[in-house]
Design a protein around this nucleic acid. Sequence first.
DNA 1: TTGAAAGCGCTAACAC
DNA 2: GTGTTAGCGCTTTCAA
Lengths: 324, 324
Amino acid sequence: MAVTIKDVAHASGVHVSTVSRAFSAAHLVNPRTRARVLAAADALGYRPNRAARALSTRRTGNLGLIVADIANPFFPPLIKAAQAHARRSDHHVFVADTDEQTRVEEELIRSMATQVDGALLVAPRLSNRLIAELSADVPLVVVNRRPAGLPAVLMDVASGARQALEHLHGFGHRHIALLTGPRTSWTNQQLEHASADAAHRLGLRLRPIGPNQPTEEGGAAAASDVLATGATAVLAYNDLVALGLIQELRSRGLDVPGDLGVVGVDNTHTARHCSLTTVDMPTAAAGRAAIDLLLRRITTEDSPGTVTLDTHLVVRGSAGPAPG
Amino acid sequence: MAVTIKDVAHASGVHVSTVSRAFSAAHLVNPRTRARVLAAADALGYRPNRAARALSTRRTGNLGLIVADIANPFFPPLIKAAQAHARRSDHHVFVADTDEQTRVEEELIRSMATQVDGALLVAPRLSNRLIAELSADVPLVVVNRRPAGLPAVLMDVASGARQALEHLHGFGHRHIALLTGPRTSWTNQQLEHASADAAHRLGLRLRPIGPNQPTEEGGAAAASDVLATGATAVLAYNDLVALGLIQELRSRGLDVPGDLGVVGVDNTHTARHCSLTTVDMPTAAAGRAAIDLLLRRITTEDSPGTVTLDTHLVVRGSAGPAPG
DNA sequence: TTGAAAGCGCTAACAC
DNA sequence: GTGTTAGCGCTTTCAA
C-alpha cells in the first residue's frame, strides 16, 4: 500500500490539510512546520497521488499526444521533444496513434480526453468534425493543419519547396514531377501551391502526380507515371514516398541521381543515411512550440495564435545535374 | 463542466450506484434499467472519470513505457505495437525516455509510477538499483535485460549473430571485427558470447572492438580501429553503429561492401532503405509480448516468466565476397 | 498559521 | 435489483 498524505500527517504531527499546504501552497505554512512535514514525507517516500489531486483541482498534469503513426520516422523526434518539454512543467504525456479503424480511435481519444488537461493533434487524417467536437471537451493544439479557432503550429514547406525547385533549376532541370500527398493534408496543399508558384517564376514545367499514399508503397507505385512524364527530376510529398520511388526506379535499372533526380520532404533519420536531398521539417521545434501553446491555452483561458516555422532544403546526393 | 455519474443518475431516475453498476457490473443490474441508464448516458455524452474510478478501484487503466530514446529508430515500432496492444484491453500508455540527466529521469519515473498500474522498461542504461526500487512500488516488465525476479521479454541476438557470421564465412571472410556496445547491455553480452562461439566453430578470427557508443558517432569513431585490424568484415552492435561506420568509411574513399563488409543489428527502417544487411529484431512482437506479461502480472498476482524471441539475419547489400 | 469538514467522481460493501 | 453509506487521497473553504 502506497504511503498517503495521512501517513505523513501522522508522522509529522500535523493535519492532512497542513501537509497538503506544505506541498502546494508553501507560503501558507510556517517554514518550520513545513520543513518538518517535508522531512517526514521524504523519510516515508511519500509522493502525492496525482489522480486524487486531480479530482479536486481539475488538473491532471497529463497531456495527450495523438499522432498519425508512431512508426513513421517523421514523428519520433516530435514526440521526443514534446515529451521532454512537457516534463519541464511537470506534465506526463499519453501517446497514441490513429492509424487503426477510425471508430476505435475516436473512442480512444475521447476516453483519453477525460484524463488530460489538453492534447496535441498531429494527425492529418483526423476529421475536422471530430476535432471540433473534441475541442469542446478539452483544450486542443494542432500541428500542420488549420481548423478554425484552434491554436496551431505550422511547418511551412513553402520556403523549402521553393529552395528545392531553385536547386533543381540550378542543376539544369526544366521539367519536374511533383508527387503529391493526401488531398486534405495542409502540408500537401502548401507544397502544391508553393511549387506551382516557384515553377512559374523559374520557368519550370511542373507536372503534379497524385494523390499518392504517403508511404514507400505510394512512391513505388508512382514510378511508371513519373517516367511517363519525361521529367528529369521529382519532388516528393515526403521522404517515405521519395525513398519508395528511388527503390523502385533502381530496381528497374535506372540511376538516381544520374537518370532522375529525387528530392524528399521531412529530413528523416533515414534520409540522412540514404543521402536523400530533402526539405528539413523542424519537428522537434514544432513539438516544443506546440507544448508551449498548449500549456498557455490551459493556464490562461485565452487562445494563443499560430506559430509558423520555416523549412529549408538540405542538399545531399539524390539530385544532381540534369541528364543530356 | 463535464457530465458526471450524478447527472446520468438524475436523467435516468436511478441512483448513482446503479449507474456505476450499469457500467462496470452489468450482470448486477436489470437489463431494462441498464438500457435506460445507458441511453441517458449516451444522450448526455457521459464518460466515466478514470481518475475518480482509480481512487476507489486502485486501477488506473494506465501503463508506463520507459524507453532509452524515442528517436532511436529501434524503439518506435515497439512503442507503436505496445500502445496498440494495450489499447485492446482499454489501457492508455504514458511514454517517456530516459536519455536526459538521470536524476530528473528517476523523479519522472517515480511520479509516473503513482499513475500507472504497471510499467514496461526498455532502457539498458537504467540502473539495476533503480529498477529494484521501482519494482517495489509498481509491477514492472523489462525488455532485453534480466534483473532478478522480473518478468522479461528477450530478443535473443544469438541466433541472428550466428547466421550473420555464417553468412560472412560463406562469402569467404575469415577475419571479422565485432563492434561491441555498452558493457552492461544484455544484448551486447549475448552478441559477444554468441559471436565468439560461432567464430570458434567456423574457424573465424574475431576481433572485438569496444565498447562503442551505440550511435552513428560511435560507429564513425571506430573506423580507424576497424581498419587497423585488417578485418574484411564487421558485425556492429546495432544499425546506428553500422551506418555511422559505413558513412565514415565511404568518406575515406573506401567501398562498402567492396573493401569491407558491414552487418548491423536491429533491422530499422533506415537499414531497409540503405541496403544494410542486418539482424532483424522482432521489436513489435516484443512490445506486444511485454504488454501481455505486464497485464498478466497486474491481474494475477503471480509473476510470469521470461519470453525469448529469436532473431534472424536479413541479407541485403552491405556485405559481399571477401576482397582479394 | 493550523485544524475541521465538506467535497471532487466513482466504487463497494451492506441493507432492504 | 436497487438504494444507502462510507470512503479512496487530496484540496479548499471556513473557523479558530
